[in-house]
Simulated scan of single mutants.
Amino acid sequence: MSQHGPRHPILSVAPERLHPTQLTVGRAEVAAKRAQWHALGAKKRKALIASHWFPGVLGPQGAVYIVDHHHFGLAMLLEGVERVPVIVQRDFSWLAPDTFWRTMEFNRWAHPYDDRGQRTDYAAIPSRLSELRDDPYRTLAARVREAGGCAKDATPYAEFLWADFFRARLKPAAVAKGGDKLLQRALLLAHGHDAGYLPGWSGLIE
C-alpha cells in the first residue's frame, strides 16, 4: 500500500458516509451485486471488500466523495457492511462548494445528469448513496456490454453515454420490461453505424 505515497492516503469509511458524484445507478445492477455478495462466505466477502478500493476525493468540510464504484457502494450499504477502503485521489476540502463541483466536473469526476439524461444543477446530486435514482437504461447499457455488444472502456461515465444512446432509440416501457427480446434489439443497435462514436464500440456486424 505504500506505493501510493502520501498523496494517496487510504481511508476506512462507513458506506453511509460516502457521497456520490452522480445522480443515478442501475438498480438491477445493484441487486445483482447483492446476490453475488449473498453467495460468498465470510472469508471471500472480506477479500472482496479488500480488493474494491473506492477512488475518492475530499470535498468541503472533509466529506468523502467517491468517483467510481457507485453500484458496489450502494450494494454494500444495503448489505450493512461497516467499512470500505477509499483511496483519496485529491484533497479539495478547502474549496467552496461551487468551485469544488466545477473542478470535479472539469476533471470528469462528476456526472450531473438525471435519469432522463438531462443536465442538472450540482445541488441535485444526492448527498447519500441511498438517494441515488434508478435509471433502467443504465442497467441496459451494462447488460449490452456483458453480452459482448461493446467493450469495457476506461472513458469516465462511458456506460452513461451508452444509456443515453439507447434512451433516444428504445421506449421506456420496453426498457422497464426488460427481457431477452429487448437485449437483442439493443445489441443490434450497439453494433450499428450510429453507435460508432461511443466508447468501446466494437464495430458493425455484417
Rank of each mutant, 00 (worst) to 15 (best):
S2P: 03
H4A: 13
H4D: 09
P6K: 12
P6V: 11
R7P: 00
L11I: 08
V13M: 05
R17L: 15
R17N: 13
L18R: 01
L18E: 02
L18G: 03
H19G: 02
T21H: 08
Q22F: 00
Q22E: 06
L23T: 02
V25A: 03
G26L: 01
G26M: 02
A28Y: 00
E29W: 01
V30Q: 04
V30H: 09
A31W: 03
A32Q: 10
K33I: 14
R34G: 01
R34T: 03
Q36D: 08
Q36H: 06
Q36T: 04
W37G: 07
W37P: 05
W37F: 06
H38R: 11
H38Y: 00
A42P: 03
K46V: 07
A47H: 04
I49D: 03
A50M: 05
S51M: 10
P55R: 04
L58Q: 01
L58I: 01
G59C: 05
G59R: 05
P60D: 09
Q61E: 15
V64T: 10
Y65R: 04
I66M: 12
I66D: 05
H69L: 09
L74H: 03
M76H: 07
M76P: 01
L77Y: 05
G80E: 03
G80T: 05
V81C: 05
E82M: 11
I87N: 06
Q89L: 12
Q89S: 04
R90F: 09
R90P: 03
D91W: 07
F92E: 04
F92H: 10
A96N: 13
A96Y: 12
A96I: 10
T99C: 00
F100C: 04
W101I: 09
R102T: 10
R102L: 09
T103N: 09
M104H: 08
F106Y: 09
F106K: 12
N107K: 08
R108K: 11
W109T: 00
W109D: 02
A110G: 10
A110V: 08
A110C: 13
H111R: 12
P112K: 05
D114S: 07
D115M: 06
G117W: 10
G117H: 13
Q118L: 08
Q118W: 05
R119L: 15
R119S: 06
T120G: 01
I125S: 07
S127T: 12
E131A: 08
L132H: 06
R133Q: 15
R133M: 14
R133S: 15
D135S: 12
P136Q: 06
P136L: 05
Y137D: 06
L140M: 10
A142E: 13
G148P: 13
G148R: 08
G148W: 10
G149A: 06
C150V: 11
C150I: 11
C150D: 07
A151P: 00
D153T: 10
D153V: 12
D153A: 15
A154T: 15
A158Y: 08
A158T: 02
A158L: 02
F165M: 03
R167Q: 14
R169N: 12
R169F: 12
R169K: 11
K171Q: 14
A173F: 01
V175G: 06
G178D: 10
D180V: 15
K181W: 03
K181I: 06
L182I: 07
A186L: 13
L188Y: 07
L189E: 07
A190P: 11
H191S: 13
A195F: 01
G196N: 08
G196W: 01
L198G: 09
P199E: 13
P199T: 15
G200I: 13
S202C: 14
S202I: 14
G203H: 14
